[in-house]
C-alpha cells in the first residue's frame, strides 16, 4: 500500500515539474548563436520584393520546399496550418513562410497558389536559381536537383526538411525536424511572441 502511494505521489510530482519548466525554454533544436536572417526575394503573391526585414516585429516559421513535392512539403505546411489554428488570434503576429528550392518549375504564380491552398495568409518566396542557391548555401540548407531516370517527375529536389523559428528581431532561434509535435511548435511561437 505504501509503495503504491509513493508511486502516485511520484507521478503527480513529475506532472507538476514538467508543467512548470523554464521561462523561455524552446522545444526545437535551439541555435546557441542565433544568426540574423537576411535575404531579398520576391513575394510570389504580389510579385513585389520581399526582404527578411519585412518579417521584423513578427515571429515567423519558415521552411524550404517545392510545390512538386507530394509528401514532405505538404506535411510541413499542414503542420504550419495546425500551428496557426492552435495559436488562434495570436497568429496575427506570426508569419508562415515557404522559400522555394525549385525556382525553375515553381513560377511565382504557381508557388503563391500552392501556399494559399493551405492558408491564404501563407507566404511563398521566390528567387532566381542563383539567388536561391546562394541563400541556401549561406544558411547551410541543402537544395540539390536530382535527375530521376525511372520517374515521370523528370527531376526531384533533395532538400533540408526542417522548419525554422525566427524571432521578432529576425534571428533564427530554433529548428524542427519533420514530424515535430504541433503543440511544441505552437508553444515555442507563443514563447517568442511574449519576448
Amino acid at each position: 500500500m505504501r509503495g503504491w502511494r509513493l508511486l502516485v505521489t511520484l507521478l503527480l510530482g513529475s506532472l507538476v515539474v514538467s508543467a512548470c519548466g523554464g521561462p523561455v525554454e524552446l522545444h526545437g533544436a535551439v541555435f546557441q548563436q542565433p544568426r540574423q536572417l537576411d535575404f531579398r526575394l520576391t513575394d510570389s503573391a504580389s510579385g513585389q520584393p520581399f526582404r527578411a526585414t519585412d518579417l521584423e516585429g513578427k515571429v515567423a516559421l519558415l521552411f524550404w520546399g517545392y510545390t512538386y513535392c507530394p509528401d514532405v512539403c505538404p506535411t510541413t505546411l499542414g503542420e504550419f496550418k495546425r500551428v496557426k489554428a492552435e495559436l488562434g488570434a495570436r497568429a496575427e503576429d506570426v508569419r508562415f513562410v515557404m522559400i522555394t528550392v525549385d525556382p525553375e518549375r515553381d513560377t511565382p504564380d504557381r508557388l503563391s497558389r500552392y501556399v494559399a491552398s493551405f492558408d491564404p495568409s501563407f507566404i511563398g518566396l521566390w528567387g532566381d536559381p542563383a539567388a536561391i542557391q546562394q541563400l541556401a548555401e549561406r544558411y547551410g540548407i541543402v537544395a540539390e536537383k536530382r535527375a530521376v531516370a525511372d520517374s515521370s517527375a523528370g527531376y526531384l529536389v533533395d532538400h533540408t526538411a526542417m522548419a525554422f523559428l525566427v524571432d521578432k528581431q529576425g534571428l533564427l532561434r530554433a529548428g524542427y525536424p519533420l514530424g515535430v509535435k504541433v503543440e511544441d511548435m505552437a508553444a515555442d511561437v507563443r514563447a517568442l511572441l511574449a519576448e
Binding site: C69, D71, V72, V142, R146, V148, D150, S151, A153, L156, D158, H159, T160, A161, M162, G175, P177, L178
Partner: peptide, 13 residues
C-alpha cells in the same frame, strides 16, 4: 519513398 538523412529529405522512386 523518402530517405531522411541529417534532416535532408531525399524522395526516390
Amino acid at each position: 519513398t523518402v530517405e531522411m538523412e541529417n534532416n535532408v529529405a531525399r524522395m526516390r522512386p
